[in-house]
Amino acid sequence: MSDHQLPHEKGFHVSWDQLHRDARALAWRLDGKGPDNGAWRSIVAITRGGMAPAMIIARELDIRVVDTVSIKSYDHQAQSEANVLKAPDPELVGDGTGVLIIDDLVDSGRTLEKVRELMPKAHFATVYAKPKGEPMTDTFVTGVSQDTWIFFPWDMALQYVEPYRGTD
């Protein structure tokens, strides 16, 4: 038996319902923690994974100003150098004061490190965090082991699965 596991062998499957619950839990942790009498000025979602949690958090915290930052740090399930493809509106975010940066997951922390260069005073929040990336996030909901591959609902499709025992 090989010691090497494929991503699905140590996978954490997240349903839409679970993501919604976890993003709401993140919103509750962030509620009242902004620098403007507890309020946040805006949200910047890290695309693409941060968009769904950012939408839920924006709704829960009644934040109407939402922008995106596009970072590419994966090629075919392997991490690569983090590159900014699209930065948020500099007039909107400034140095990041009062801005929530939202992503689905912090893995190595390289993506958040790159975004922190753009907005050093922003508050970084992720739904899930792996140990190597935890120091780069200010708030997260669920920690997972470094060798766990998270399957997000936007990466999955429903399909029929044969029963484990027999076909009767």
Rank of each mutant, 00 (worst) to 15 (best):
P88G: 03
V115T: 09
S145L: 09
G133T: 04
R116Q: 09
G133F: 04
L158G: 12
E91N: 08
M136P: 09
G98V: 10
D95S: 15
G94D: 03
G109N: 01
M136T: 09
T142S: 12
R110I: 15
G94Q: 04
L118Q: 06
Y128N: 02
L118T: 09
K114G: 13
A87V: 09
F124H: 07
E91V: 11
D138W: 02
T126D: 00
P90A: 08
W149C: 08
T139M: 07
V99G: 03
S145W: 07
M119A: 07
G109D: 00
M156Y: 02
K121R: 14
D147H: 12
L112Y: 01
T126G: 01
Q159N: 10
Q146M: 08
I150S: 00
L118I: 15
P153E: 02
K130C: 01
M156Q: 12
W149D: 02
P131H: 02
E134P: 05
Y128H: 13
T148V: 14
F124E: 05
R110P: 06
E117C: 10
A122L: 07
T137S: 14
F152R: 07
D89K: 12
S108P: 06
V141L: 11
T148A: 08
M156T: 12
R116L: 06
A87Y: 04
T97Q: 07
M119R: 00
G143T: 09
P131L: 06
V93L: 07
S108N: 08
D104M: 04
K130S: 02
M156L: 15
V93C: 10
T142I: 11
G109K: 00
K132A: 12
A122C: 05
D103E: 04
I102F: 04
G133N: 06
H123Q: 08
P90N: 04
D95T: 15
E91G: 08
I101Y: 03
V141Q: 07
D138L: 03
E117A: 14
P153C: 08
I102L: 05
Q146E: 15
A157K: 13
D107G: 08
I102M: 05
M136S: 13
D95V: 13
R110D: 10
T148M: 12
P135N: 01
K121E: 14
A122K: 01
K132P: 13
D95F: 08
G96R: 00
T97E: 13
T97G: 06
D89F: 10
E134W: 05
L105Q: 11
T97K: 10
G143I: 09
Q159I: 12
E117V: 14
D138I: 05
M119I: 14
T126F: 00
D138T: 05
S145R: 13
L158Q: 07
D107E: 12
H123S: 07
T137I: 14
V144A: 07
K114T: 15
A122H: 01
R116Y: 03
A125W: 03
T139K: 03
M136C: 13
G96Y: 04
